[in-house]
């Protein structure tokens, strides 16, 4: 699991952007989706997730806003910006190329 984590860590931002392309979401929901999609094999640590949010926000790839839940505590939602979509597309392309090369090498 730890080796897998190291390999995946570099793609944390892209993974989050990928979740936000479908719809605006908040921390726990994003993490839950990641867990479900990987059959509980992968999950981000909270600290990693929120550090990534701050970095993405600073880069202008995502925006955040507070939800208007009437009951209970308010959630902070994130939405992807056009710049973020472009970055996601670019990162995905880079990954496809890397994957192809590594497949040939190992």
């Amino acid at each position: 699991m730890s080796i897998t984590s190291d390999l995946i860590r570099g793609h944390t931002e892209t993974i989050i952007l990928g979740q936000l392309i479908a719809k605006d979401s908040y921390g726990y929901e994003i993490n839950k989706a990641i867990q479900e999609k990987t059959d509980n094999q992968y999950e981000l640590k909270e600290a990693t997730l929120y550090s990534a949010f701050r970095r993405l926000e600073q880069a202008g790839f995502i925006l955040s806003y507070w939800g208007d839940e009437t009951t209970g505590a308010r959630r902070r939602y994130y939405s992807i910006t056009p710049l973020g979509k472009e970055a996601y597309r670019q990162n995905k392309q880079d990954w496809e190329r890397a994957k192809e090369l590594i497949d040939r090498l190992i």
Binding site: Y26, G27, Y28, N31, K32, E46, A73, R75, R76
Partner: peptide, 17 residues
């Protein structure tokens, strides 16, 4: 402060789940 609020809300939801 906002980060803590965000964290608490999400952790609580996870706990409830």
């Amino acid at each position: 402060f906002e980060l803590k609020e965000e964290l608490i809300v999400n952790l609580t939801e996870k706990y409830d789940d």
